[in-house]
Design a protein around this nucleic acid. Structure first.
Lengths: 79, 79
DNA sequence: CTGTGACTTTTAGTCCGTA
DNA sequence: GTACGGACTAAAAGTCACA
């Protein structure tokens, strides 16, 4: 049962990093905006931990993405 | 920033309840399958709490839905 | 600017029973 | 079969020092 989870978590890490890059934000800047700690962003982007729905929502808001975009297989090159 | 979260959490509650009903599962049965506690399912369906990504994945698996379907505004009538 | 380990505080998630 | 509360344990949230 952990395979889905592992895959999703890994995808989440990638998506956040990409979206953040597209916004031209540093981990620090993202952390500040999302009211999270710099190192916590680092952890998530490394696929460490198991973020809660609340954290996902915070990040989604700042990254101007939907929670789906964070968890899913989004990020098509350029529509 | 809490509005998105509140909305999503509420939607999550509804979606799980509906999907569970469609599967003909009781909260107990769902909890058992997902390896979660009976009362925790109850909490989630009442919009209480802040489930982790792992829990979302577990539930999605049992309900044969995608995590997106749980968090989003899914449940289209019949594709 | 980011990765990482160690750490403390808060909360998720469990287990009990009651209605 | 479900809502709800209290007490408890595991884990996430959040911080710091250092590479």
């Amino acid at each position: 049962m952990g395979r889905d989870y592992d895959q999703i978590r890994k995808q989440l890490a990638v998506n956040i990093r990409v979206l953040r890059g597209q916004k031209g934000l540093s981990q620090e800047a993202l952390a500040l905006s999302a009211d999270l700690d710099r190192t916590y962003i680092s952890q998530i982007e490394r696929g460490v931990g198991n973020p809660s729905l609340l954290v996902l929502c915070k990040l989604a808001t700042i990254l101007e993405a939907d929670v789906n975009d964070l968890v899913g297989v989004p990020l098509p090159p350029q529509a």
